[in-house]
Amino acid sequence: MNAMGMTKALMEKTAQATARELGPGSDTSVSAVRYGNVMYSRGSAIPLFVRQIKAGKPITVTEPTMTRFLMPLRDSVALVHHAFENANQGDLFIKKAPASTIADLVSALKELFNVPDHPVEFIGWRHAEKLYETLASAQELASSEDMGDYYRIVLDMRDLNYKPYFSEGEEVTARLDDYHSHNTDRLDVAGVKELLLTLPEIQTELQAWTEVK
């Protein structure tokens, strides 16, 4: 986990500690939302790939089999609205999102910009880079509510008592898998293209590209 990830996790823990202290009967509810990189944000590779295509430079890819969640800005805003409307004390909300491999993302962009022969340069893994993104652990999912498009992870309000785990063999979590970009819905190249075309930034870039060509 990098510095940004650690600080985000710390803020989640701070919010949960505050919610636990306030308690369910408080007039103030504290909840949080969690999501990965937003498409075309500063943390997204998409604007970098577009700039490289437009400049005629090779598209730089670290590892083509890596997967990343694909979440438009509108979905992150909807997640916040969902939390405002549905949050109980200490809830953590996660928006379910599709993912794709970096290779399919690059192929989709090349097709959209009609540059099928544009070069791709594989530059190797960056420091601390992960093969996939994880949005929820198996332990968190064991205490979650599936709300269709969202997961609600409920804060454990019980007093901390570790005795049952040692003396009674209490099961800590159900046997679930983490929720990550390798096991979520996987978009193919056509699906990525369709999603990219819904982004205003991509529409603007394609219009400018067509005018230049």
Score class of each variant (00 low, 15 high):
49 F>A: 09
49 F>E: 09
49 F>M: 14
50 V>L: 14
50 V>H: 11
50 V>D: 11
50 V>G: 10
50 V>R: 08
50 V>N: 08
51 R>Q: 15
51 R>I: 09
51 R>S: 14
51 R>H: 15
52 Q>H: 12
52 Q>V: 14
52 Q>W: 11
52 Q>N: 12
53 I>H: 06
53 I>Y: 05
53 I>G: 07
53 I>C: 11
54 K>A: 15
54 K>T: 11
54 K>P: 13
54 K>C: 15
54 K>N: 12
55 A>F: 09
56 G>E: 10
56 G>D: 12
56 G>Y: 12
57 K>S: 13
57 K>R: 13
57 K>T: 12
57 K>W: 01
57 K>N: 14
58 P>T: 05
58 P>F: 06
58 P>L: 09
58 P>Q: 06
59 I>G: 05
59 I>K: 04
59 I>V: 13
59 I>D: 05
59 I>L: 15
60 T>Q: 14
61 V>L: 08
61 V>R: 01
61 V>W: 04
61 V>H: 03
62 T>A: 14
62 T>I: 08
62 T>L: 09
63 E>C: 14
63 E>D: 13
63 E>W: 14
63 E>K: 09
64 P>G: 06
64 P>S: 07
65 T>D: 13
65 T>P: 00
65 T>N: 09
65 T>Y: 12
66 M>F: 12
66 M>L: 08
66 M>K: 10
66 M>T: 06
67 T>C: 13
67 T>W: 00
67 T>R: 11
68 R>M: 10
68 R>V: 09
68 R>D: 03
68 R>H: 09
69 F>G: 03
69 F>M: 09
69 F>R: 03
70 L>V: 04
70 L>K: 02
70 L>W: 01
71 M>G: 00
72 P>H: 01
72 P>V: 03
72 P>Q: 03
72 P>K: 03
72 P>Y: 00
74 R>D: 10
74 R>W: 01
74 R>P: 02
74 R>E: 15
74 R>Y: 01
75 D>W: 00
75 D>Y: 02
75 D>L: 13
75 D>K: 10
75 D>C: 09
76 S>Y: 00
76 S>W: 00
76 S>F: 00
77 V>R: 07
77 V>N: 02
77 V>W: 00
77 V>Y: 05
77 V>A: 12
78 A>C: 08
78 A>T: 03
78 A>L: 13
78 A>W: 00
78 A>K: 11
79 L>T: 09
79 L>P: 06
79 L>K: 01
79 L>S: 05
